[in-house]
Design a protein around this nucleic acid. Structure first.
Length: 307
DNA sequence: TCTATTTGACCCCC
DNA sequence: GGGGGTCAAATAGA
């Protein structure tokens, strides 16, 4: 029994690492698309943000594999455990009447920040506003949001949003904790959101990969190094030339459609999540890889030079 | 009527 | 003691 749970634990961490890599791969592919088609309109995420997500994902995967078994399963939950509503706590935060403030050391609990010119930036999750404050050092008010499934799913994810720049307007969203609700209303946004890539990754595990993931698991969990090697082989097999010969593939079209769909403002100005058509899944088919390895050099540049 | 947002007050931490 | 995070009643909107 204990043996089984240990094995399960191993699989879980292994799967998470694989998912992290797949996620990074998907982001890389999308980045490549954006680089290949710089004039394509409707992009919702900047190249820089995509690159950051990629670096983050691969760092995550590396950490999982280099971590000791103890931390394997906790890798993603670590983020939430920094929050007071940690997984070891009861499902519902027992606040009683104490308005006890969580540790204000935001550096330790802050997961990610995202700057956007769009105050209605949609990250795939539903948020409920629970407060607004004037911040002393800023002329703009800060809004406080928590996950709409905070109660239903004991989701401890929170975010703050504040305008940090006027002209052009820049809104900074800071994410805390991580989603335990596993409900992402925008699959693509969930994939590409840089707001909290790790969290989204975890959510994308459920929404994105679905049955395909199970198949992926089958093929990957036997040994990542082997899989990676195999995929590297496929990188060579499908050369850049082949890629270019294909022109814009169905995958690419899907991708562009998704990009457009996902950033089409509704008449009211608020964002309307696209209906899930499955095209996103096609777009991030795990068989597709980044062919142009030079891209990875750029990721490093982003990682070490621009962060 | 239900749900989401606003806002003043409360409370903790620095 | 002040700043900032959260609560919860009041309010708005569908």
């Amino acid at each position: 029994m204990a043996k089984t749970s240990t094995l399960n634990s191993m699989n879980t961490s292994h799967e998470k690492a694989v998912q992290a890599i797949l996620y990074g791969q998907s982001c890389a592919k999308r980045l490549k698309l954006q680089l290949d088609h710089p004039m394509a309109d409707g992009r919702s995420v900047s190249n820089y943000d995509l690159a950051k997500s990629i670096v983050h994902c691969f760092s995550s995967a590396i950490s999982i594999f280099s971590d000791k078994p103890k931390s394997e399963d906790n890798f993603f939950s670590d983020l939430s455990s920094r929050d007071s509503s940690s997984s070891s706590s009861p499902p519902l935060p027992q606040r009683s009447h104490s308005k006890k403030r969580k540790n204000n050391n935001t550096n330790s609990s802050e997961n990610w920040r995202h700057d956007s010119p769009d105050p209605n930036y949609y990250d795939g999750f539903l948020w409920r506003k629970y407060g607004q404050k004037t911040i002393k050092q800023s002329k703009h008010q800060r809004s406080y949001y928590r996950c709409s499934y905070n109660i239903d799913h004991a989701c401890g994810a929170r975010k703050h949003e504040q305008k940090i720049k006027d002209n052009p307007p820049v809104y900074r969203t800071t994410y805390f904790g991580h989603h335990t609700c596993n409900i992402n209303h925008n699959q693509d946004a969930g994939l590409t959101t840089v707001g909290d890539s790790v969290n989204d990754l975890e959510n994308s595990r459920m929404i994105w990969f679905g049955e395909d993931l199970d198949q992926e698991k089958e093929s990957h969990t036997s040994g990542l190094s082997v899989s990676v090697k195999h995929e590297e082989g496929s990188i060579k097999e499908e050369t850049v030339d082949q890629y270019r010969h294909r022109g814009i593939t169905s995958h690419d079209k899907d991708c562009q459609n998704v990009i457009k769909e996902n950033h089409q403002p509704s008449p009211s100005g608020s964002y309307t999540p696209p209906s899930s058509s499955g095209s996103e899944i096609d777009m991030f088919d795990s068989d597709l890889l980044v062919e142009d390895l030079d891209l990875w050099d750029r990721y490093d540049m982003y990682d070490f030079g621009l962060r």
